[in-house]
Simulated scan of single mutants.
Amino acid sequence: MSLNQTSKIEGTLFTIPKDKRKENGPIMEGDFQITGENGKIKGAAWMKEKDEGPGKPPSLYLSFQLELNRDQKFYGAIFPTDPSQKTADKAPDYFGTFNLTREKGGPVLRIAGWKRKGNKEPHTPFISVLIEAPRPRGAGNEQQPSHHREAVGAGGLPI
């Protein structure tokens, strides 16, 4: 399996119950599929805070990791969409970037995520994630990170 600037990856992130989380471990995990490739890959997300400076509340975001194998890990960041910037019901609830290298300024893919609920009881909430090539300017990708804790959801969980 490999990733490049034309890769398309789809998957889901489910919240790990608090009693099953490890200290400093992820708060969400799930399975992902690279279009055109066989096999699933594991994804995980950790809640992080970004300091926005004096007098401003920190921004909450998800630090995201996909692990193709023990030696190949890729990272990104997922931010909640500011509700005032959500222009349509089908617009993503989350957005971010996914780095294809560890180098600053290296190639990135776009992350979009939507809040969903499972079809069967107990209708477990999850985030449906799409990772793909960035869209051209003006195609709805000018979203900026929300700087409000409320945008992340009750209890600090992303869904």
Results as ranks from 00 to 15, higher is better:
P158S: 00
L3F: 08
T12D: 15
E49I: 01
P136D: 02
K8V: 15
E121T: 08
N4C: 02
T81R: 06
G55I: 07
Q72H: 07
Q5E: 14
K86A: 10
N24K: 05
K86C: 01
D19T: 15
F14Q: 07
E67C: 07
N119C: 05
G155S: 09
T35W: 12
D71F: 14
R149F: 08
D19M: 01
L109N: 04
T97W: 04
P134H: 00
M1H: 11
T97S: 08
G118Q: 10
K117H: 10
Q85C: 02
V129Q: 09
A45G: 06
G138C: 05
N69E: 04
P107C: 08
E150R: 14
F126N: 00
E37K: 06
P136E: 02
Q65G: 05
G106N: 00
P26C: 09
L68M: 03
K90W: 05
L3S: 08
G25C: 11
K50R: 08
R149C: 03
A44F: 01
Q143A: 14
L62C: 04
T124M: 10
I127N: 09
N119V: 05
A151V: 04
Y94R: 04
Q5K: 12
G76S: 05
L3R: 10
T97A: 07
K56M: 09
H147I: 12
T124K: 13
L100D: 00
Q72Y: 03
Y94Q: 03
P122K: 02
P17Y: 02
K48I: 08
F95G: 09
E37R: 06
T6Q: 10
S7K: 11
L157M: 11
P57V: 15
S84Y: 03
G76C: 10
F32E: 06
P145A: 04
L100E: 00
N38L: 00
I131R: 02
T81H: 05
N99A: 09
A91S: 09
F64M: 14
A77V: 14
T87F: 11
G113S: 01
G106M: 01
A91K: 00
G106S: 04
L13C: 13
I111N: 02
N141L: 01
S2N: 11
S63H: 13
L109I: 06
R102T: 15
S146E: 04
G118I: 03
T15K: 13
N38V: 04
R70E: 15
T6D: 13
P107S: 12
E150D: 14
G53P: 04
D89N: 08
A151H: 07
A151W: 01
K90A: 08
G155R: 15
E37F: 03
S2R: 04
S146T: 02
F79R: 05
L109Q: 07
G11P: 09
I16K: 03
Y61F: 15
L68H: 05
T87G: 09
E49S: 00
G53K: 12
S59R: 11
K42G: 13
Q5L: 03
E132S: 13
